[in-house]
């Protein structure tokens, strides 16, 4: 089992080498990058937005219900919501959601192309199919996912504000004051880096699984599942490593 795992890791890195070889035609890759941006990033805006607004609201209620001590200033609700969002939710939770959405999209698309011989057809034309199909996906997901993180952060804060305003659990002025309190700009860099790394893992692992899918439509389903499971586990592992390295 260990041997199989090591072999798989080796195959993954060989695959990445193939993916990041020089493009045959930069203009076509750019066009593909735009298409992938639409498919992977722009189409994810809605789900990220909806989840972020609701989670922001939930965080506000949960934090407020845990800060009932009259000696603690209520503005800490806003502060805690902001810190929870930027440190963990907007990067890790959003990445786990994207692992499902983006990961299954990539793995099933490439897997279907593999079993219908479309990838073989590209190879037979002399096109580096791995580079043409995968490189734009990985670059779009890695470079642009921090924008989704920023969107998630802003909408999460707005979600918290809406709940605070509607329920009156604390004064909105306190919430706003908490959001502004003791802000550490490095957390934005940390969160952007984490999101980019997680989306690199999601896009590369699901591409690897899809590209080498076999065994018909069932095989495509299995590769999609494997991609999501592997990406989710690695996201949590790297979350721990990056947090340890960047915050301590």
């Amino acid at each position: 089992m260990i041997k199989t795992a090591i072999e798989k890791v080796g195959e993954y890195f060989l695959f990445l080498r193939k993916v990041f070889s020089r493009p045959e035609n930069a203009r076509l890759y750019w066009k593909q990058f735009i298409l992938e941006t639409d498919k992977l990033i722009i189409s994810s805006i809605l789900i990220v937005a909806v989840i972020s607004i609701f989670i922001g609201g939930v965080l506000a209620i949960q934090t407020a219900s845990n800060l009932e001590n009259p000696f603690i200033d209520k503005m800490y609700v806003g502060y805690m919501v902001r810190e929870s969002l930027i440190l963990e939710f907007c990067s890790t939770m959003v990445a786990l959601i994207l692992a499902g959405k983006m990961g299954s999209n990539i793995a099933s698309e490439l897997g279907s192309m593999r079993i219908t011989e479309q990838i073989d057809a590209m190879d037979m034309m002399g096109v580096n199919s791995a580079a043409f199909l995968v490189q734009p996906k990985i670059i779009a997901a890695t470079l642009l996912s921090p924008l989704l993180m920023m969107l998630s952060f802003i909408l999460g804060l707005i979600g918290g504000y809406i709940v605070v305003d509607f329920t009156g659990i604390i004064r909105t002025a306190s919430y706003i004051e908490g959001i502004k309190y003791s802000f550490n700009g490095f957390y934005i860099v940390y969160s952007c880096f984490k999101t980019a790394l997680f989306c690199f893992l999601i896009s590369s692992i699901s591409s690897f699984e899809g590209y080498y899918a076999g065994g018909g439509s069932l095989g495509v389903g299995r590769s999609s599942t494997r991609a999501i499971v592997a990406a989710s586990i690695l996201i949590l592992m790297f979350d721990l490593i990056v947090t340890e390295v960047m915050l301590y």
Binding site: E24, N25, L28, S112, M113, T116, E117, Q118, D120, A121, M124, M125, G126, V127
Partner: peptide, 27 residues
């Protein structure tokens, strides 16, 4: 080399004309 695959292997993401133009775009 031109290859006709058993299932045709046309690219789903491209129209008929784009499929035929695909190798020309590269080479």
């Amino acid at each position: 080399i031109g290859v006709l695959f058993q299932g045709s292997a046309l690219f789903d993401f491209a129209t008929v004309i784009e499929n035929v133009m695909f190798p020309m775009n590269f080479f």
